[in-house]
Design a protein around this nucleic acid. Sequence first.
DNA 1: GGGCTACCCGTAGGTCCGTACGGGTATGGG
DNA 2: CCCATACCCGTACGGACCTACGGGTAGCCC
Lengths: 125, 125
Amino acid sequence: MTEPDHAHPVDPERVAHARTRLPGREETAQLTSVLSLMADPTRARVLFALDMVEELCVGDLALALDANEDAVGYALRLLRTAGLVANRKQGRVVYYRLAEGFPAPLRDHCLRQLVVLANAAPEDD
Amino acid sequence: MTEPDHAHPVDPERVAHARTRLPGREETAQLTSVLSLMADPTRARVLFALDMVEELCVGDLALALDANEDAVGYALRLLRTAGLVANRKQGRVVYYRLAEGFPAPLRDHCLRQLVVLANAAPEDD
DNA sequence: GGGCTACCCGTAGGTCCGTACGGGTATGGG
DNA sequence: CCCATACCCGTACGGACCTACGGGTAGCCC
């Protein structure tokens, strides 16, 4: 059954309450786009690394993450496109850092909190 | 160039610092698995709805999200498998709610904070 | 008890994402 | 002035994810 006749709003009150306060499609899309960016091992580690040390170039970043330069370069491209990281070019080396407009609550509450709960979480699958 | 000879640790100090405090592969995998679960419009909205009202059955949930039952059922399956939601069966109706073991910091700091910043965020692409 | 309802599950298909590879550009050293 | 380096970019491949569909099971109404 794919699309019922809506024969059963079992709890119309709660449904209405949820519908009212639920974020809209557009807000959800924005939110999930940010989360999707963080939901990748390489990108997440890049953000963590840049949160600890203020600046790193691509080569050193790959070295710190034990990843090849392709993966790091691709990750940085997406993060840069999304405006989450900024780059500074000095000579032939490009240094990356967290963007100034990087969402502060996301950095404070999520980025570091998630590390903590990742350690604390017993299992989730 | 995919794998250089590591001829340039430009900032060995920062690289070492990052390497030391960076979360390991396994921690990162756990973290990204949780984030991936939230990085889907349907699942995110399901979690938001369940955070507002304590319980909802599948049909009403689909009704509240303006989604068909297939999508909601699939979303709930994954969330259930990950242990993020629990279900209670009353008669032929199955009520879902956030699991007791649902990471509290994630709920308090991320789930709701992200909604706020989703509204506040001007744009990110 | 028969039939309908609410929901679960396995399968097939389309689509998007991440990785690997090759070439290109700008900078700095000899 | 020429070559090596650090990095960016476009393309092709493989895989994972989400959606859609059909069948199946458990519980309520008549």
